[in-house]
Amino acid sequence: MNKTINQKAWYFVIPVFVLVAFNAAIPLMTVVNYSFQETFGNNVFAWEGTRWFKQILLSERFHASLGRQFAFTFIILLIQIPLGIAIALTMPKKGWGVPVCLILMSMPLLIPWNVVGAMWNIFALPDIGFLGYTLNSVGFDYNFTQQPGDAWFTTILMDVWHWTSLVVLLSYAGLNSIQPAYYQAAEIDGASRWATFRYIELPKMKKVLTLAILLRFMDSFMIYTEPFVLTGGGPGNTTAFLSIDLVKMALGQFDLGPAAAMSLIYFFIVLLVCWVFYNLMMKNEAQS
């Protein structure tokens, strides 16, 4: 759409600007403030320069939780995106199946995150949970509260359960926007199922898929409540992702300086990845 240049449009944006600035800028400045200072309680602060940043960037604890975070995000993207596409492709396109699928598949998205964690906790308990009991009775030695591998398996399975539907809904919406003429043309050309997918469906889904990857990256990178309730970051620290580690440091140990420095580094990483994605998306849009 060709837009008119109109500086008065700023008046329309003011309420949003004020509300978000009020919420984002002030707290963010507090964090920046802490990150350069040492606190002795009672509002006494001393300038520390970049000491906390160096400390965090060089600390093994941060490297470890960052590594776990990237591993987790990478694995869930690798599972959720193809699985989501596959389910969207096989979903019914008309009839009673559509609302049934949509309603049931949206369910996990609307459950409060701590309930998701609690639900999976009782579902996976080795003695009284369905998953744990079944796995143990068919011969696996499964106990997610004690074995790191099992804890990872359960956390990933929980996230797949929780969020794959978002990818499904987005891909489904993308598929629905394809006109039947494209499929007819493909049929006349004798295109194989794979060719139809590769050259018709996938390009049409490019926009929503970029969005799905972006949303899933952001949200999995900030994941806190679900693994916190499910495993509490344990056993040991094996499932302590960035947010869990950060909250432990800020609210548990009250190490404000290092926690603030870690927050900023954390935020910066998310921002960097999202900026790349945003530019990719805008480029796609400009092309189409």
Partner: peptide, 27 residues
């Protein structure tokens, strides 16, 4: 409309969707 700083403002808004709540909890 097009207005001064519209694209930057839009991206700045989006960055707040990306901010980890854990970062903001204490402030």
């Amino acid at each position: 409309y097009k207005f001064l700083g519209d694209k930057h403002l839009f991206f700045w808004l989006l960055t707040n969707r990306m901010a980890p709540p854990a970062v903001f909890a204490l402030p």
